[in-house]
Amino acid sequence: MKRPRRRDPLPGFGLSLGITLLWLGGLVLVPLLALLLRPLELGPLGFWHSVTEPRVLASLRLSFLGALAASAVNLPLGLLVAWVLVRYRFPGRRLLDGMVDLPFALPTAVAGLALTALYAPNGWLGAPLAALGVKVAYTPLGVALAMGFVGLPFVVRTVEPVLRDLPLEAEEAAATLGATRWQAWWRVVLPALAPALLAGFAMASARAIGEYGSVIFIAGNTPMWSEIAPLLIVVRLEQFDYAGAAAVGLAMLALSFLMLLGLSLMNRLWRRA
């Protein structure tokens, strides 16, 4: 590609870049700058106290551990769905394919309401589970369930293209060399998919950490027990504690960023090995 400065035959570079910067700056960068600067008025010590309050720590722990647990469960499930969609032809395949995107398209409040109705003690799935002694709605388990619901498409849609482009030759070679189907899958297919699985895991977790609408209905929102970090932001805003709310938001973003950084480093090491 040519550099735009040297008389590019295509017009519109300056105009489109200008519009893009204006659009990005006004709608995303300036607002995020407020999030970055607002907690400063607390001072470093005040910020630390604000984000290490027991209730805040408990909510951050639930948001992050819940998201990681939900995404971990989504890994095998997402892999299974991606595998079936890419490798097999069966009646209803297109329908299954469309179903995967449902959590993307369904408004989060609707998902939250639906999951609560389903897993409440008198719901279709909640009643049999309650009979087994498993409480889902209004517990951290319910929180993780809603997080899994919104995260699943990320795993499937990240693994799918990689699996589709995976050359069959490697598996054929493994079979020729005497590997069983299971050995070929475990030693050849899975390592090739590992980076995509990890990337899907990271995206699903990032989404789940910040998730609000689908979680708050099923969570029951008991402080120190089933209260997620985004809800704490809302609570602080309602008390007009803007700096405190921004501090929780900033802590969430920083922790997410560290988590994504860690996962991408892991991915790089994996690829080198």
Binding site: A34, P230, A246
Partner: peptide, 18 residues
């Protein structure tokens, strides 16, 4: 990758009463 709640919060930080 930003929580929806934070997406609302930033506007309150800019244009809210405080």
């Amino acid at each position: 990758s930003v929580s929806p709640v934070i997406s609302g919060l930033v506007w309150v930080l800019l244009f809210g009463a405080h």
